[in-house]
Amino acid sequence: MGQTGKAVHEVHRLEQLAARDQWVNRIHPLVKFFLTVGYLAVTVSFPAYDLAGTAGMAVYPLALLILADLSFRDTGKRLRLVLPFVLLIGLGNLFFDRNLVQIGGFTIRAGVVSMAVLFVKGTLCVLASYLLIATTSMEKLCYAFGILHFPKAVITQFLLTWRYLTLLLEEVNRMTDAYALRAPGQKGIRMKAWGSLAGQLLLRSMDRADGVYESMLLRGYRGDYAYIRETAPLRGRDAAWLLFWGALFVLFRRFPVLYLAGAGIGGLLS
């Protein structure tokens, strides 16, 4: 399966995950959206050397992963794509941050700690976004955007992109397959065909857009379609979910919860 095939597969997999009828999936999309953004902001706001504090933030994705019944393996796969760049930047710390710190009697470079923090932050952020989209369908997310007064036209545009994404990816797949079958041994598209291959795709996409527009027009569209009118009131448990996690994020950010917990356990043991 080529790159495009994998992308189509991933879109379908996520749609299936989001379509499951589950407790986490049923939480109001606006609540999940706010929580995710808040989580990301809190997580990246940890100081560059606060490894324990940052790591503590893993509670949220961990809890969601378990509650939403998602596979750890598939989740782990997504990290591969993102972490290299973060690590590359983090490597800079290893070389340029020459301060020394002592941890449990060992003296190490502070850069090691800050790189680890960066790595943890990167992992957690990717996880949080993934958990949002794996438990919330794109329509529901757009419904939340609608509540937030995003322009209707932009939401419709976004949903159309989403709808035609797989269709055009499959089109690319067919075109590159057809190309490869007639050009054995070539790894990509050679220069002579650059313009015509991608250009054909562009023209076909434009024709597709014309067709879509005609279809919309003939069904009464006048440029102001409000996508989803689903009335999903914010229920008590949505609010409770928001408050609970919100409070927890603040708690973890303001107090070294892991240290306190660690000290507490230490006190009990001694």
């Binding site: 495009t4 159309l160 055009l168 690319v172 795709l201």
Partner: peptide, 15 residues
Amino acid sequence: GVMGAFVFAAQMINF
């Protein structure tokens, strides 16, 4: 909307 999908798909082509 459709051109957004086009860009996404075109990004996948190896030149």
